[in-house]
Simulated assay, not measured.
Amino acid sequence: MTIRVVVADDQELVRSGFAMILDAQPGIEVVAEAADGAEAAQAVRLQGADVALLDVRMPGTDGIEACRAISTATDCRTIMLTTFDSDEYVYEALHAGASGFLLKDVKRDDLVHAVRVVAEGDSLLAPTVARRLVEEFRSRPRPAWAPSSAALDALTTRERETLLHLARGLSNAEIAAALTVSEHTVKTHVSNVLAKLGLRDRIQAVICAYETGLVTAGVPADAGLSRQALPLLGETSPPDPPRG
């Protein structure tokens, strides 16, 4: 199955460069390029794209608004691109529905890997971006609209443990090792967590874990669990391979 991609960036050379890299890969086709967010959202709808690669900062409709429009109206998944590893829009972009966040100096192979991972339904954050997200959680009070604890009560003990591990950025293999179960079982737990909480992907699961108070930035996610301390999000091993 071919992954259909829309690339949006107001800088033509940057946009064309990313498009050329992706279009040269087997199983990936760049179906449209766009100079702003409005063009990107329209192209996604017209072309039936699977993944949209969006620059965060574009004139007119920026990447965040485009991401929100795309996530609301289509099944297309979005990867945000930024020049800055301390971009203040990380938090907003992820809330808008972004499934990935990369720096523009990303290596060719990492860019291709990110598109494949996101197209498979998983999520991906550059390590420096993940650390920025944790900083945001530390600086922001828990929002009044955060889901109630009743939603978390619907989770089984194993599903709750899985969510805690997701919140620390562990891969499926690492969660399987921590829980002493198979990776297939972990995938089932992850799917159940997303379905029960009405979440789109692992990134939204991380946000939910922090905003419901299940995990607090700076406090070990395994508090109350009989397991060793887990690393902070952004200090973990690379993301799962494309097969998810």
Results as ranks from 00 to 15, higher is better:
Thr2Val: 14
Arg4Gln: 12
Val5Gly: 11
Val6Ala: 11
Val6Arg: 08
Ala8Ser: 12
Ala8Met: 10
Asp10Glu: 08
Leu13Asn: 12
Arg15Tyr: 01
Met20Ser: 13
Ile21Phe: 01
Leu22Arg: 10
Ala24Gly: 12
Ile28Gly: 12
Ile28Pro: 03
Glu29His: 09
Val30Gly: 12
Val30Asn: 08
Ala32Asp: 03
Glu33Gln: 14
Ala34Ile: 11
Ala35Glu: 14
Ala35Pro: 03
Gly37Leu: 11
Gly37Val: 12
Glu39His: 06
Ala40Val: 07
Ala41Phe: 11
Ala41Lys: 03
Gln42Asn: 13
Val44Phe: 02
Gln47Ala: 15
Gln47Lys: 14
Gln47Tyr: 02
Gln47Phe: 03
Gln47His: 10
Gly48Phe: 01
Val51Asn: 10
Val51Pro: 05
Asp62Ala: 05
Glu65Ala: 15
Ala66Asn: 02
Ala69Cys: 05
Thr72Arg: 13
Thr78Leu: 03
Ile79Cys: 11
Leu81Glu: 10
Thr83Gly: 14
Asp85Gln: 05
Ser86Arg: 15
Leu94Trp: 03
Gly97Ala: 02
Ser99Asn: 13
Ser99Pro: 05
Phe101Trp: 01
Leu102Lys: 05
Leu103Glu: 13
Asp105Phe: 06
Lys107Tyr: 07
Leu111Gly: 10
Arg116Asp: 10
Ala119Arg: 04
Ala119Ile: 03
Ala119Thr: 04
Glu120Val: 06
Pro127Phe: 09
Thr128Asn: 11
Val129Ser: 00
Val129His: 01
Val129Pro: 02
Arg131Asp: 13
Leu133Ser: 04
Val134Asp: 12
Glu135Gln: 15
Phe137Ile: 06
Arg142Phe: 04
Pro143Ala: 05
Ala144Val: 05
Trp145Ile: 12
Ala146Met: 01
Pro147His: 03
Ser148Arg: 13
Ala150Ile: 09
Ala150Gln: 14
Leu152Ile: 06
Thr157Gln: 14
Arg158Met: 13
Glu159Trp: 03
Arg160Gln: 13
Glu161Asn: 14
Leu163Ser: 11
His165Met: 15
Ala167Leu: 04
Ala167Pro: 01
Arg168Ser: 15
Arg168Ala: 15
Arg168Tyr: 10
Gly169Pro: 13
Gly169Trp: 12
Leu170Val: 06
Ser171Ala: 08
Glu174Gly: 05
Val181Ala: 11
Val181His: 07
Ser182Arg: 08
Glu183Trp: 01
His189Gly: 06
Val190Tyr: 07
Ser191Ile: 04
Asn192Tyr: 05
Val193His: 06
Val193Phe: 00
Leu194Trp: 02
Leu197Lys: 04
Leu197Ala: 06
Arg202His: 07
Arg202Pro: 06
Ile203Trp: 04
Gln204Ala: 02
Ala205Glu: 12
Ile207Lys: 08
Cys208Phe: 03
Ala209Lys: 00
Tyr210Arg: 09
Leu214Val: 01
Val215Asn: 08
Ala217Gly: 08
Gly218Ile: 01
Ala221Ile: 00
Leu225Cys: 08
Arg227Leu: 09
Gln228Arg: 09
Pro231Ala: 03
Pro238Trp: 10
Pro241Asn: 07
